[in-house]
């Protein structure tokens, strides 16, 4: 009997608690930055495309919804010729982001992607590429990588010595 009365009292008290229900969509949801929502492709601090077309995101994707083709510009810089995500298959697991060695592919706190036609959920590179560094500012893969692709010359990287003079026999 006491237990019943206690329960009714607690329920009554809830009338005075703060409401948890949000009046979506009039009221927007506050999202955490690490929420795994809509996938974007970001740019490096110098405004270049971060994606180098390494295919690791596609390989990591458990539903195989990423397809791309790598291409190379005249400086030897790799970029995706096309980059396609089929969001009607995507499960927002974030493995692609984990696999990405250049911070190019990132999941964003945006889940508002509903479409009337499934075909509209196929995003091409133009739909994915944003003009921002996303969650990981400051990283430019080509400044760290050992090859020259028009970003820095050989030996000019942060952790590189000047190229070896192969004609020299000095120690």
């Amino acid at each position: 009997m006491i237990s019943h009365l206690r329960t009714m009292w607690l329920v009554f008290l809830h009338l005075f608690h703060k409401r948890e229900t949000i009046q979506y969509p009039e009221e927007k949801v506050a999202m955490r930055p690490r929420w795994r929502g809509r996938i974007v492709l970001t740019k490096d601090p110098d405004g270049g495309e971060r994606c180098v077309g390494c295919y690791l995101c596609a390989a990591a994707c458990p539903v195989d919804c990423i397809a791309l083709q790598a291409a190379e510009d005249e400086n030897g810089r790799r970029y995706p010729e096309f980059f396609r995500i089929n969001f009607s298959r995507c499960i927002f697991c974030g493995y692609c982001e984990e696999a990405c060695p250049t911070y190019a592919i990132q999941l964003t706190p945006d889940f508002e992607m509903a479409e009337y036609r499934r075909q509209d959920l196929v995003y091409e590179k133009e739909d994915l590429l944003i003009d921002s560094q996303g969650k990981y500012p400051g990283y430019n893969f080509y400044k760290m990588a050992g090859l020259s692709a028009g970003v820095k010359e050989k030996g000019k990287g942060e952790n590189e010595e000047a190229p070896v003079d192969i004609k020299s026999l000095l120690p």
């Binding site: 596609a58 539903v63 195989d64 919804c65 397809a67 396609r84 089929n86 298959r89 959920l121 196929v122």
Partner: peptide, 16 residues
Amino acid sequence: QRYSGRTAMQANKAVS
């Protein structure tokens, strides 16, 4: 078994 992109390769033509 690592073959990627099965559900996206031809999605530009038809999503099914």
